[in-house]
Amino acid sequence: MTDALWTVILALLSAGLIFAFLRLARGPYLPDRVIALDLISILAMGFIVAYAVRFNQPNFLDVAIILAIISFLGTVAFAYYLERRV
């Protein structure tokens, strides 16, 4: 029962990741790609948290903290670059 639920959880996260990646590939504008990257990093964080619980490894949560910070800084940097470009 629990195994089936884990399959569903990871499948849902993977599907979200695939959709976000399709948007990253399709664009059509640069900001579309930036928000797709932002969503991908949040989804990767979700993956890490899910794996931390699945394999009982609380140390993985530190990676999630770093990823959250990096993704915010990256998005802000992209926004700054876009605003300067105009």
Partner: peptide
């Protein structure tokens, strides 16, 4: 976990 994964899936669909 299921609810969180579902909302992340919805975010992908919305994207």
């Amino acid at each position: 976990m299921l609810a969180g994964a579902f909302f992340m899936f919805l975010a992908g669909i919305g994207m």
